[in-house]
C-alpha cells in the first residue's frame, strides 16, 4: 500500500469517526430537549405555539455541534 492510498484510507476512517462520535452528544441533547418540550405541551397545550417555535430554534442551536462535525469531516475528506 503506497502513501497516497494509505492517506486516503485514513481520511475515510477519520471522517466517518468524526461524524459518528460527533453526532452522539447532539442526538442525546436533542432527544432530551424534545422530551421536555413534549411534556410541557402535554401539560399546557395553549403554549404549544411558543414552545414548539422555541424548540425549533433550540434544536437548531444544539444541532450546530453536529454541523461543525459535518464540516470537519468534509474538510478531512476533500481538502488535500
Amino acid at each position: 500500500m503506497d502513501a497516497e492510498t494509505y492517506l486516503h484510507a485514513v481520511r475515510l476512517i477519520v471522517a466517518g469517526a468524526t461524524m459518528a462520535i460527533g453526532s452522539i452528544a447532539p442526538a442525546i441533547a436533542e432527544g432530551r430537549a424534545l422530551t421536555q418540550a413534549l411534556e410541557s405541551i402535554a401539560r399546557q397545550p395553549d403554549a404549544s405555539g411558543t414552545i414548539s417555535r422555541t424548540l425549533f430554534v433550540g434544536l437548531a442551536m444544539v444541532e450546530s455541534t453536529a454541523i461543525y462535525c459535518l464540516v470537519m469531516s468534509f474538510i478531512i475528506l476533500f481538502v488535500k
Binding site: A60, E63, S64, I67, V71
Partner: peptide, 10 residues
C-alpha cells in the same frame, strides 16, 4: 460568522 456557516450547512 459561525452561525452563518451553520445556517448554510444545516
Amino acid at each position: 460568522l459561525t452561525r452563518t456557516l451553520a445556517l448554510a450547512v444545516r
